[in-house]
Design a protein around this nucleic acid. Sequence first.
RNA 1: CGGGGUGUAGCGCAGCCUGGUAGCGCACUUGCUUUGGGAGCAAGUUGUCGGGGGUUCGAAUCCCUCCACCCCGACCA
Length: 571
Amino acid sequence: MRASQFFLATLKEAPQEAELPSHKLMLRAGLIRKLGSGLYSWMPLGMRVLHKVERIVREEMDRAGALEVIMPPIQPAELWQETGRWELYGPMMLRVKDRAEREFCYAPTAEEVITDIARKELRSYRQLPVNFYQIQTKFRDEIRPRFGVLRAREFSMKDAYSFDADEGGMLKSYQKMFDAYVAIFTRLGLTFRPVSADTGEIGGSASHEFQVLADSGEDLIAYSDASDYAANIEKAEALAPATPRAAATEPMKKDPTPGTSTCEGVAKLWNLPLARTVKAILLTADERVHMVLIRGDHSVNEIKVGKVAGLKGWRWATDAEILAAADGPAGYLGPVGLDRSKITVIADRTVAAMSDFVCGANEKDFHLRGVNWGRDCPEPDLVADIRNVVAGDPSPDGKGTLAIVRGIEVGHVFALGRKYSEAMGATFAAEDGTQKAFEMGCYGIGVTRIVGAAIEQNHDDKGIIWPDPMAPFTVAIIPMGAGKSEAVKSASEALHADLVAAGIEVLLDDRGERPGVMLADQELIGIPHRVVIGDRGLKDGVVEYQHRRDAEATRVPLADVAAFVKAKLAR
RNA sequence: CGGGGUGUAGCGCAGCCUGGUAGCGCACUUGCUUUGGGAGCAAGUUGUCGGGGGUUCGAAUCCCUCCACCCCGACCA
């Protein structure tokens, strides 16, 4: 490809709206242009990258035996009403009406449609297992679209759905997809980790996320330094402390803490470590108020809270509820002196093992110190894991300790089970002649998000550094002064022709720009391999090769350069 | 949704406080020179100052209103 025949839309300065490196670089390199909040057009250069990603995804999905389909992005409300998700999905779903006032949505996902296909088309266990997938545009009306393509409202997603006759088969299909995902992200050249995850709204038994590791990621991942254990922090279990609760050594004492409503404040005031304090959070579930206790330096894991018996569908308590149940205002709450008939005390495992701790006195401007379970207040009604793990916690698998890194979720696999097939009456004739609901799995990959994640992980101050498999062009040829030097011109043309003939994607910069412009653009765009051809080297019969990650150029004899580049790519 | 901010040329910004009909850099066009790290000189082009309404002799500037976009937060007491 000649640059003069292509459309490069590079920008010297990034539009004000961009915050993250990947967002800025995608705009500057001319991969995308913004249309509206969370809406992006893909420019020619971006399309080349997107096609690379799609191609690898397709190849690995096909290799895993999945079959490509394409379903409409506009879906009738009726299907969603069958599973109850028309209401459940809420404002995230973009709803539209046609001229006859019939309701539709712009698909945020396609479980309903694929299940509808399955119940109509799949009749016998003999047709199973099957896995259908599509690469299709989705729309989710995010609360706050941001980070460019990483949290856009419209995005391209590969979604696959497997149908099996029984759970064993489904788990096999799940494993196949898991393996395919590993192959996809490996081929893309990304540093990633599969982590076990919460199943969230979609439901089901097993679930793994595929996270591209990057400092700007929105997700926190806990992993063990001594085993394969890795989990989203939403799910990572915080084990109970290994050492039992120590015996009480201090008397309980009530002291004033005027205007100090936080654990940090009390710890500072009394010159105690934060880890000696306990914070109390009140919430309401099933009309009953619950006090949740977390160590001062820990944070509540809302997902874990929702899984505690009796707390399904909980909400934060109102100020009125707090006063009625605890006799004290928010900021000064604790487990001592409560009327347990009105309130249930739920302690995090860590808190349950604490002694001589500090907590609120259920009275404005007072806290207690030297508090001990059993002696000063009854034992907690319930002890549960309700906090987020922190770096240094023991790994839940018993091997090593946890460290925490950030990641960008680019893939997610779910062992769904019969949730959708049962809701929609999707059944098949089993071997014994009975009708059974399909065992389903669903598997997503954020195709457009991968592009942003790859840049987030691979860039420097000059621009993008594409992994070869995703690069819009693999090699850039930069002729110095081709307008003046016939030797430079013919050498560039010859190399271009040679590499093109070898099926290599080359960009020959024949725009006649100045050297600085050509080099800066090549670096911004992130073409991984470049060959600079100029009279300076040509008089010695050499040209310069430099990888985007190399600090220095390598002088290569002109006669060998084609072979040299091909050898570099073959690795 | 709550809070904050911004909207002036394709991009980045100044002008607004203290009203007088719009400017800078880059980009773009033409010419000459230049050509190994975002060139120089010269001559140009580009704006419904986000929309609507109001105040005023006069509004980018003051007031009201709507819209768009960005950032932070969304209950951790």
